[in-house]
Write a protein that binds this DNA or RNA. Structure first.
Length: 914
DNA sequence: TTAGGGTTAG
C-alpha cells in the first residue's frame, strides 16, 4: 500500500514539479552530458561543454579525461590529466585504462606505478590491461600480488587464459572462484567456443542453467554460438524454447544469435522463415542473412535480400559486395564499394579479397597500396590471394615482410603461408613458421594446426605429421582428413585405412581421400567398393570427387575403373556437368581409349576446355589428321582457340609428322589470333622440325625466339639429334644442358660415352663428377598394367613380383628368338664403363618388358595389352615390342612418359620417331 | 551478435 503511494508520488513529482536549476543540478547535468557525448565518440563537443562550464568538480575532469582516453585521444587525455591538480584514484585509473586499451601497455604500467594510492579497481584495470595486450605472464603475476580480489579480478584473469586458448588453466581458475556472475560463465563458454570445443561449451552452459544463474542476453548469444558447432538441430529448438521462457526471443540480439545458429548449421530455409518472423531486425540481422545466402552459393537470394534492406549500412553493403565478387561479378562488386560513403577497413578488405579471388592480383595489390589503413586481415587476404594464384614463393615472402615489420601475423596469414610452403615443398620455411606460431601461441588453432599437418604431409615428413596430429587436442574433421591424405600421399595405405576407420565422423573429402589412396596404390577393386560404400552411407560425391577420381584413373591408365565410374555418373546425374564430361574425355584419351570421341559427341554442352581436351587427346594418341579436322570444326563453330588449343594442335602435328600443317598453325597463332607463342609452343615446333630432320632450323628457332629457352626445349633438340645421329650438334646441345644444370641423366651419359669413345678420360671423369655433385641419377623405370581392375607394377630389374621367375624365363625365350632374327641390342644409352654383357642385361630387365610379358601370360590369346610407363620407352624395348606384336599377333599399346605407341603386326604408330 | 582474411579431396 505504502509502496504504491510512494510510486505515485514519485511519478507526480517528476512530471508536475519544475526542475530546480540549482548550480549543483546544473553541474550534475553537464557531467552526465559529457559522459554521454564521450560514449558516442563526440569528444570535441564534450570538450566544448567542459570548457564552457562555470564550475567544474573532479567528476567533470575525470569524465572528460576518460572521454578522451576511451576514444584513443591519448595525448589530449594526458594534457588534461597533467593540468588537473585535484587528481584522485579515478583520474589515474582513467588514464591507465586509456593507455592499456590502445596498446600502450608500458605507459599504462608507468601510471600504475606512479599512482599515489590504488584501489581494487585500479588493480583490476592493470590486470585487464595486460590481458587485452596478450601479456598473460604479467597479468597473472599482478593477479597473484593482489591483496584483495573481487569478481572482476577473477573474470579478468580467466579471460586472459581463454584468450590464449589455455582452457585447462582457465577452467581450474573458474572452478576456484569464490563467486561467479553471468560474465564469468559467459567468458568460459565463449573460451570453449573459441577453441571449437562446442561440447564442453554446451556442458558449461547446462551447468550454469542448473546452478540457477539466470541466463542473460549475452549468455544466450554464446550459447547459440556453442550449439552451432554441435550440428544438433533439435538443440537449437530447445534453446529457443528457453529463450522464449525468459522473454528474450524477441530481443533483436538474441534473435540474431538464433538466426546465426540456423544459418551456420546449414538450415537456410528455417533461418529464412525465422528471419521473416522476427519482430525487429537490425543491421546485424540483415547482414547475417545476406552473408549466409552468399556463403552457400545462393547468389540470387543474397542479392534479392540486399534489395530489401531498409537502411543500407557499411556491413550490409560489404556482404552484398562479397556476394557479387564470389560470383565473379567483380565490376558490380566494385560499383557497390564505390557507393559506400565511408568504407571501413573490412569493406576495403572485402574488395581486396574479391580481386584476389578472381585472379586480379594487380588490382588487388594496387588497392592494398591505396588503403588508408590496413590490418592483419588485409595482409592475410593478400597472402591468400598470392597462394590461390600460384605465387606461393611470393606469398611466403610477404609473410616474412609482415613479420619483419613487427606486426604479429594473423592465424589466416599463417594458414595461407603454410599452404604456400606445402605447394613448393619448402619444409624449412614451414618449420620456421611452426616455431613462430608456437611463440605466438596459435599452433593449435584449428586452421593453423591443420595447415601444419598438411604442410608436413606434402613435404613428406610423416613423423612430423603424426607428432602434430597427436599433440592437437581439438581435432576436427579437417585434421583427420589431412592426416589420411598425408599417409596416403606417402604410400602408407594401411595406416591411412586404419585412420579412416577410426574417424569419429566422415565427409565427402574423407571418402575421396581414402578412395584416391586405393586408386593410387593400384587397387581399383577396393576403390570402387569404397565408392559404392560411400553412396550407401548417404554421402554423395560431388563434381570434385568425380573429376579427381577420373583424373587419377587417367594418369594411371585405369580404364576399367574409369568405365565403372562413367556408368555411375549417369546414375547420379553428373552427366550434365561440363567439367565432368571434360574429365571423362581426358580420362579416356589418357587411357589410350577412343571412347573419348563418343563422350565428346554425347556432351550436350561443350566449352573451350572440352575442345582442348579432345585436341590434347588426339595429340597423345597420334591422331594428327583427326586433330586437324577437329580444330577446323572448332573454329567453324565459332569457338576461338586459345594458347592451350594451339598447344594441342601443334603437338598433334608433331606427333604425326605433319610438318607443313604444324608450321601453318604456328604462324597463324600470332598472325590471326594475336596469341604470342610460349616456350611450350616453340618446343612443339622443335619436335616437329626435329622429326623431319630439319635440325639446323630447329636450332635457329631456339636461338632466335624472343623468350628464354628452358631445359625442356633443349632436351627436345637433343632427342632429335640422337634420332638423326647428328653427333656434332648433339654434343653441343648436351654440353649446353649440362652447363644449365639439368637433372636428367641423358645428356651426361651421352657426353660421357662420346668422350670415352675418343679416349678423353679427363673429360669423362669431369662429367661423372658433376653428375655426382648435382645428385643426378637415372630415374628408375616403372611400368604398370591393369588386369581385372587391378594394377600390377614393375620396376626395372624387379625381383619382387610373385610371377617374376616365370616372367624372366618367358622373356629370355622370346629374346633368344628375337636376337636370332639378327637384332643387335641398342646399348647406346647405357653408361659406357660397364661390360657389354651387363649392358644387355640391364636392357633385358627394363620394366616395360617385364610388364608386357606379364600381360601376355595373364590375358587370353590375341587380346590387346596396354602398358603404362613413367619414362620414355628406349629403342631396345621399342624394337622388342614391335617384334612381340608380330609373333604374338596382339595389339600392344604403351603409354610412355611422352606419348602413346600403338604396336601392331611389327610396326608402331609413332613411325619410330618419339 | 554482423560484414573481410584461412586448413583437407584437385
Amino acid at each position: 500500500m505504502n509502496r504504491g503511494l510512494f510510486r505515485c508520488y514519485r511519478s507526480l513529482s517528476t512530471r508536475a514539479l519544475p526542475i530546480q536549476e540549482t548550480p549543483q543540478s546544473k553541474l550534475f547535468q553537464s557531467n552526465k552530458r559529457i559522459q554521454e557525448l564521450g560514449r558516442l565518440g563526440r569528444v570535441d563537443e564534450a570538450r566544448k561543454l567542459f570548457d564552457d562550464m562555470i564550475q567544474r568538480d573532479s567528476v567533470a575532469w575525470n569524465t572528460m579525461i576518460s572521454g578522451y582516453s576511451q576514444n584513443g585521444r591519448l595525448e589530449e587525455a594526458r594534457a588534461l590529466f597533467d593540468s588537473f591538480a585535484g587528481k584522485n584514484v579515478r583520474t589515474w585509473t582513467s588514464m591507465l585504462t586509456g593507455y592499456a586499451k590502445y596498446g600502450r601497455i608500458e605507459e599504462a604500467r608507468w601510471v600504475f606505478e606512479s599512482m599515489p594510492e590504488r584501489n581494487i579497481v585500479s588493480w583490476n584495470a592493470m590486470v585487464s590491461g595486460y590481458v587485452q595486450n596478450g601479456d598473460l605472464c604479467n597479468a597473472r603475476r599482478l593477479f597473484d600480488q593482489m591483496g584483495e580480489r573481487n569478481i572482476v579480478s577473477w573474470n579478468s584473469i580467466v579471460t586472459g587464459y581463454c584468450h590464449c586458448c589455455r582452457m585447462r588453466e582457465a577452467r581450474e581458475l573458474f572452478d576456484q572462484m569464490p563467486e561467479r556472475n553471468s560474465v564469468s560463465w559467459m567468458v568460459v563458454i565463449s573460451g570453449y567456443v573459441q577453441i571449437n570445443d562446442f561440447r564442453e561449451a554446451w556442458d558449461v552452459f547446462v551447468r550454469m542453467h542448473r546452478s540457477e544463474v539466470r541466463p542473460d542476453q549475452s549468455i544466450f548469444v554464446v550459447a547459440f554460438l556453442s550449439i552451432t558447432g554441435l550440428n544438433d538441430f533439435e538443440l537449437i529448438g530447445s534453446l529457443r524454447t528457453l529463450a522464449i521462457k525468459m522473454g528474450l526471443e524477441s530481443d533483436v540480439v538474441v534473435g540474431t544469435g538464433i538466426l546465426n545458429a540456423y544459418t551456420r548449421s546449414g538450415c537456410l530455409e528455417v533461418a529464412m522463415n525465422f528471419f521473416e518472423s522476427m519482430p525487429e531486425r537490425n543491421e546485424f540481422t540483415w547482414t547475417s542473412m545476406i552473408a549466409a545466402f552468399s556463403q552457400c552459393g545462393r547468389f540470387g537470394d543474397a542479392i534479392a535480400l540486399s534489395r530489401r534492406v531498409p537502411e543500407k549500412s557499411v556491413s550490409t553493403q560489404t556482404a552484398t559486395m562479397t556476394a557479387y565478387a564470389q560470383n565473379g561479378r567483380i565490376g558490380q562488386a566494385k560499383q557497390i564499394f564505390d557507393e559506400i560513403p565511408n568504407p571501413n577497413v573490412v569493406a576495403w578488405n572485402a574488395m581486396l579479397a574479391g580481386y584476389a579471388q578472381n585472379g586480379m592480383l594487380e588490382e588487388a595489390n594496387d588497392l592494398f597500396l591505396r588503403m588508408p589503413s590496413t590490418n592483419s586481415a588485409s595482409w592475410a587476404a593478400m597472402i591468400a590471394g598470392l597462394v590461390q594464384n600460384g605465387q606461393s614463393k611470393e606469398a611466403v615472402e610477404l609473410l616474412a615482410e609482415l613479420h619483419r615489420s613487427g606486426v604479429v601475423p594473423s592465424h589466416s596469414s599463417f594458414t595461407s603461408a603454410l599452404s604456400a610452403c606445402a605447394n613448393i615443398g619448402a619444409i624449412e620455411m614451414g618449420r620456421q613458421i611452426h616455431t613462430l606460431s608456437i611463440k605466438i601461441g596459435c599452433q593449435f588453432n584449428s586452421y593453423v594446426g591443420n595447415g601444419l599437418i598438411s604442410m608436413y604431409a606434402k613435404c613428406k615428413s610423416i613423423e612430423e605429421v603424426s607428432q602434430m596430429f597427436c599433440r592437437m587436442r581439438h581435432r576436427d574433421i579437417v585434421s583427420w582428413n589431412s592426416l589420411i591424405t598425408g599417409l596416403s600421399e606417402n604410400h602408407m595405405l594401411d595406416d591411412a585405412r586404419n585412420t579412416f576407420e577410426k574417424m569419429p565422423k566422415r565427409d565427402v573429402v574423407s571418402w575421396t581421400a581414402i578412395i584416391s589412396a586405393y586408386v593410387q596404390a593400384g587397387n581399383g577393386e577396393v576403390a570402387l567398393q569404397l565408392f559404392l560404400d560411400m553412396l550407401a552411407h548417404g554421402t554423395n560425391p560431388n563434381e570434385l570427387t568425380v573429376t579427381s577420381l577420373l583424373s587419377t584413373c587417367g594418369s594411371l591408365g585405369a580404364t576399367k575403373l574409369g568405365e565403372q565410374i562413367h556408368a555411375l555418373i549417369y546414375k547420379f546425374g553428373f552427366n550434365s556437368y561440363v567439367c565432368v564430361g571434360n574429365s571423362l574425355v581426358t580420362m579416356y584419351f589418357k587411357c589410350g581409349c577412343e571412347d573419348g570421341f563418343s563422350v565428346f559427341e554425347e556432351m550436350g554442352e561443350q566449352d573451350i576446355v572440352t575442345w582442348n581436351a579432345i585436341l590434347a587427346g588426339c595429340a597423345q594418341n597420334g591422331f594428327g589428321d583427326k586433330a586437324i579436322k577437329i580444330f577446323e570444326k572448332m573454329k567453324a563453330n565459332g569457338v576461338v582457340p586459345d594458347q592451350i588449343s594451339f598447344l594441342g594442335i601443334l603437338s598433334a602435328c608433331s606427333h604425326s609428322g605433319l610438318v607443313d600443317e604444324g608450321l601453318g598453325y604456328f604462324n597463324s597463332m600470332s598472325q590471326d589470333y594475336d596469341i604470342l607463342p610460349l616456350v611450350h609452343h616453340y618446343t612443339c615446333m622443335v619436335d616437329l622440325l626435329g622429326w623431319a630432320g630439319r635440325l639446323s632450323e630447329a636450332e635457329s628457332l631456339i636461338e632466335n625466339m624472343p623468350i628464354e629457352a628452358d631445359l625442356v626445349i633443349w632436351e627436345a633438340l637433343l632427342a632429335a639429334c640422337r634420332f638423326h645421329c647428328n653427333i656434332k650438334l648433339g654434343q653441343k646441345v648436351a654440353e649446353r644442358l649440362v652447363q644449365m644444370g639439368t637433372q636428367k641423366s641423358g645428356p651426361y651419359v651421352l657426353l660421357s660415352n662420346l668422350y670415352a669413345s675418343h679416349g678423353m678420360r679427363d673429360k669423362v671423369r669431369e662429367i661423372q663428377k658433376s653428375m655426382v655433385d648435382r645428385g643426378v641419377s637415372r630415374e628408375q623405370g616403372l611400368s604398370w598394367i591393369q588386369i581385372k581392375s587391378k594394377l600390377h607394377y614393375f620396376l626395372t630389374g624387379d625381383k619382387t613380383h610373385n610371377q617374376i621367375k616365370k616372367i624372366y624365363s618367358v622373356l629370355m625365350e622370346f629374346y633368344g628368338h628375337f636376337q636370332a632374327t639378327g637384332y643387335v641390342p641398342d646399348t647406346d644409352f647405357v653408361l659406357h664403363d660397364v661390360e657389354e654383357k651387363q649392358k644387355q642385361n640391364e636392357l633385358l630387365y627394363h620394366s616395360e618388358k617385364l610388364a608386357v610379358i606379364f600381360g601376355i601370360l595373364n590375358t587370353p590369346n590375341g587380346s590387346p595389352i596396354q602398358i603404362l610407363k613413367n619414362l620414355r620407352i628406349c629403342c631396345d624395348c621399342h624394337n622388342f615390342v614391335k617384334y612381340l606384336s608380330k609373333v604374338t599377333g596382339r595389339k600392344i599399346v604403351i603409354r610412355d612418359g611422352n606419348r602413346f605407341h600403338h604396336f601392331l603386326d611389327g610396326s608402331c604408330s609413332c613411325r619410330d620417331y618419339w
